[in-house]
Design a protein around this nucleic acid. Structure first.
Length: 924
DNA sequence: CTAGGGTTAG
């Protein structure tokens, strides 16, 4: 508004000259046009009409251009009536307007029907073709242009450049020099941009010397482009030097320097420049606003946006979309609707950028319907708005609609693929992620770091080590080895697949580590039973980085302490969470500590803690406490806990499984049945792991009735498996068998990653991998006749099931077993157990280790210890069943005896290799 | 003796 008043004051002042008066009015009209001040423009039109100068030729043409800009066809028609017959300038205006509207063929028609053309007509049309990528047609016209001047040359140079043809623009420039036309400041601006985009420093310097020779070294625009040139080529000092030497600086010069600080990530210095700038326009505001939004300072972004509006700066589409993005980050639906109304008032609802942000805003607020309305109203949909709508559906769990839309995109880009990939990822449809990824590769689309991180995350959740390793190779080929997101995803993938060695290897090689990287490593170590190392990495993080531990890290630390038996250390961290780390323990942290105390026999303390909780205790906390009572014979506490659980069942309809356990342990079988029936009546499904078996390409899922013990049917199937396996191993058509017992969940559902960054989420996962699809996706289970027994919960009752299975296995095969579940109780060494088995007359031994071997790195110990023990008995064959994802680690100790032993199950030795290893050992 | 065509900051 400020500049309007300035111009108006000229108008109100005594008229010095008529020409000055006209010029002032024209300048105000131009301002209205540029700032889309439709109402103001119309008011001014009325005023000009009243004082009788609206039909002054120059004023009338400006009015025409203004209405053309506003796309007011009735007003345009009205004004055109005043020009009877042919008028070259009006015709040129119409050509330009049609070019602006994208009606290039209409513009050509207007051009062709002109009885007479001038240099402006030619240049306008040539530019029009260049604007829409029709380079050949424009060059055809350019060569036939009878009015070559510096403007048409410059137009051609910059138009060709905008189409990415750098060398062609240089060629044109040289041709221009040869033809005797001298470049002006605008030409230099364009050609310096060419050298900027080519990254050609010496070319830039040559051009600078030519500019100095022709007297343009002091030109503001030329200096501005020199600033950008230096910045893009990494010469900060040169940029500052140019800026400081400038005799006159405009808002563009200041904004360029502002942007330099913003790009350097120095928001404070940028803010200083911003506050000191003598003049700010919508771009300067936009730079600040968008950067505040990107850096996560959404509120500050909105504050600036408000301030800008108060300063009467009309926001452009970039500002608006940044502000809308900020609101989307804040999930501020109400303010979002206000800004939507504002957009409509400004007449900007046709802008694709603004509309895309609005789609995103509604999506972030869970309002996909309104998002879809905006989306459907976008006339010239570009790939960005398609992607936005897909993300909106994806993030709200409507993958069906997202996929439907995805398949309709006319021109998919990498972001389109990424939004559908992260949609499936966020919805935990990991198999779909891999499917889409395959499609993408087949269609020849190269993945980027975001795709790779997402797919790695899917592999991690599928514990699909084989695929993950393949991807690791791909990242190296694509040159992503230094990307922090990709590396973090690799750390997580290896850790979740149980390959902690590789996880550590990647982690230690990382040059840059962020919060998620540290979290993934600490969590990975804790989950895989390397509690002490997990604590070491945590301490390293505290010492060497400025990263504050988050909820998830602390949960992992508590978990690690619990599983290493470091009860006091665990309590120390738990008690200092709020003081030291400003994190309020949530119910998961409490569960962990209750479990830790119960496990170590401090059952009373555990009970006191659970009773003093400020939040609701999780069912599993009560479960942990109850099992502590059982182990340590705390019948009195157990009784109180039982009552509490009963109360919980009555009040909140949860904890049925626990309750039935309470009854079962005291032999009240009728109560057990009652509880189970009650569950059935209420339509409740069990919680906890499910097991599955794939027979003849059909997947059979089964759940135990109460979640801790398997269904009788399970036993039947297992029996069947064993039966089949023993009698006709070669005809066996069982693809894989996966048994899960009482999986203990490590709750880890904090999501990381912001919009625009590769998304990485560490999700809830049991320490075993609930439902272990990984058996299949690993490629291991795909071979007929391979049985993989996945086990390893630390719970004793879980291992009872394993033992039942193994007992049956033994009955059918004659294999005795060394099972660490027994070891934990009796604490024999593997050697002792091995000796004991052989002494009892066994000639085949199965070693079936824990996943979380308490306090031990099982893969370091088990195979070597077993091999050590087996040395004394060369006639005895043995089998080590490896927990999922750790098969590859057994490779080092695979000897012929293991192969022989496995061949008994698998049918032949080559299949065995598949069973114990991954890709590397697949025999050709 | 102007108006209509070419540029730089995001």
């Amino acid at each position: 508004m400020g500049s309007i008043f300035k111009s108006l004051s000229v108008i109100r002042n005594p008229i010095k000259s008529f020409v000055g008066f006209i010029e002032a009015n024209i300048s105000v009209l131009k301002h209205c046009s540029k700032q889309r001040l439709i109402t103001e423009g119309q008011v001014l039109h009325g005023h000009l009409y009243k004082i009788g100068i609206s039909s002054h030729r120059h004023v009338a043409i400006k009015l025409l251009i203004m209405y053309l800009d506003f796309r007011r066809s009735s007003e345009v028609d009205q004004l055109l009536k005043d020009y009877e017959g042919f008028d070259m300038i009006v015709h040129n205006c119409l050509i330009s307007a049609n070019v602006d509207w994208g009606n290039i063929d209409e513009a050509r028609k207007l051009f062709d029907e002109m009885p007479e053309r001038n240099e402006v007509s030619w240049t306008a049309l040539i530019c029009g073709y260049l604007k829409y990528g029709r380079v050949d047609e424009s060059m055809w016209l350019f060569q036939r242009n009878p009015f070559q001047n510096v403007i048409s040359w410059t137009a051609a140079i910059s138009g060709v450049l905008s189409n990415g043809m750098h060398s062609k623009s240089i060629e044109l420039f040289l041709e221009m020099l040869r033809s005797g036309v001298n470049p002006n400041n605008v030409t230099f601006v364009s050609i310096i941009r060419a050298s900027t985009e080519m990254g050609n420093f010496s070319l830039g310097m040559t051009l600078l010397s030519l500019a100095i020779k022709l007297g343009y070294e002091g030109d503001v625009s030329v200096c501005n482009s020199l600033i950008t040139f230096s910045l893009r080529l990494g010469k900060m000092e040169m940029a500052c030097g140019v800026f400081e030497r400038m005799g006159k600086r405009d808002v563009i010069s200041w904004t360029a320097i502002l942007d330099m600080y913003v790009e350097m990530g120095d928001l404070e210095e940028a803010r200083k420049v911003f506050d000191e700038m003598p003049e700010r326009n919508e771009v300067s505001w936009s730079v600040m606003i968008s950067r505040y939004t990107q850096k996560g300072y959404a509120k500050e972004a909105i504050r600036l946006f408000r301030q800008m509006i108060e300063n009467d700066i009309a926001p452009n589409s970039s500002c608006l979309s940044s502000a809308i993005n900020a609101l989307a980050n804040l999930k501020a639906l109400h303010s979002g609707k206000n800004i939507h109304a504002y957009v409509m008032k400004l007449g900007m609802s046709n802008d694709v950028f603004v509309s895309s942000s609005l789609v995103d805003l509604y999506g972030s607020c869970g309002n996909t319907e309104d998002g879809r309305l905006v989306f459907d109203n976008i006339k010239n949909k570009n790939v960005v708005c398609w992607n936005g709508m897909i993300s909106a559906y994806s993030s709200n769990g409507n993958l069906e609609e997202a996929k439907k839309l995805f398949d309709q995109i006319p021109m998919k880009n990498i972001a389109s693929w990424n939004s559908i990939v992260s949609g499936f990822l966020g919805n935990e449809e990991y198999g779909k992620v891999l499917e889409v990824f395959n499609d993408m590769l087949l269609l020849g689309q190269t993945p980027d770091v975001s795709t790779i991180s997402s797919v790695l995350c899917a592999c991690a959740n599928l514990t699909s080590l084989h695929k993950g390793k393949n991807l690791h190779g791909k990242t190296l080929k694509l040159g992503f080895q230094h990307d922090v997101f990709v590396n973090t995803a690799l750390v997580d993938m290896y850790a979740k697949s149980g390959d902690i060695e590789n996880s550590k290897r990647v982690f230690n090689k990382m040059h840059e580590k962020n919060e998620v990287s540290w979290t993934a490593m600490i969590q990975g170590l804790a989950e895989n039973g390397f509690g002490e190392e997990s604590l070491e990495v945590f301490e390293e993080m505290e010492k060497t980085s400025s990263i504050k531990p988050n909820e998830l890290v602390l949960l992992s630390i508590l978990f690690a302490c619990s599983h290493c038996g470091l009860v006091n250390k665990g309590l120390y961290y738990f008690n200092s969470m709020e003081k030291l780390y400003m994190i309020k323990p949530n119910e998961r942290h409490y569960t962990c500590v209750v479990d830790m105390l119960s496990r170590s026999g401090r059952v009373k303390e555990a009970e006191d803690l659970i009773m003093s909780m400020p939040c609701e205790a999780e069912v599993s906390a009560w479960g942990a406490l109850l099992s502590g009572c059982k182990t340590y014979g705390e019948d009195e506490i157990a009784e109180r806990v039982g009552l509490k659980i009963q109360e919980m069942v009555e009040k909140k309809s949860c904890g049925y499984v626990l309750l039935s356990n309470v009854y079962a342990s005291s032999g009240r079988w009728s109560e057990v049945m009652k509880t189970r029936n009650l569950m059935k009546e209420r339509g409740l499904k069990k919680s906890g792991g499910c097991s599955w078996i794939e027979v003849r390409n059909e997947l059979h899922l089964f759940y135990s009735q109460d979640g801790t013990h398997m269904d009788l049917n399970d036993i039947y199937i297992i029996e069947m498996v064993v039966e089949l396996n023993c009698t006709t191993p070669s005809n066996l058509n069982i693809k894989s068998l996966c048994l899960n017992y009482g999986t203990q969940k490590i709750p880890t559902s904090t999501k990381f990653g912001k919009k625009g960054n590769p998304r990485l989420s560490l999700q809830t996962r049991s320490c075993l991998g609930n439902g272990n699809g990984g058996v299949r996706s690993d490629g291991i289970g795909k071979r007929d006749g391979v049985i993989i027994v996945d086990h390893g919960s630390r719970r004793k009752e879980s291992n009872l099931m394993l033992n039942e299975f193994v007992a049956m296995f033994i009955a059918k095969t004659g294999y005795p077993i060394v099972e660490p579940a027994h070891m934990e109780l009796a604490k024999p060494s593997i050697q002792d157990a091995f000796h004991a088995c052989v002494e009892k007359g066994a000639n085949r031994v199965i070693v079936s280790p824990f996943f979380l071997f308490p306090g031990r790195h099982w893969h370091q110990d088990i195979p070597s210890l077993t091999a050590e023990a087996a040395k004394d008995y060369p006639d005895v064959s043995y089998l080590i069943t490896a927990p999922l994802g750790l098969h590859s680690l057994l490779l080092d100790v695979v000897d012929d005896r293991i192969k022989h032993c496995l061949s008994h199950i698998a049918g032949d030795a080559e299949e065995c290799a598949v069973c114990v290893g991954t890709g590397k050992c697949r025999l050709h």
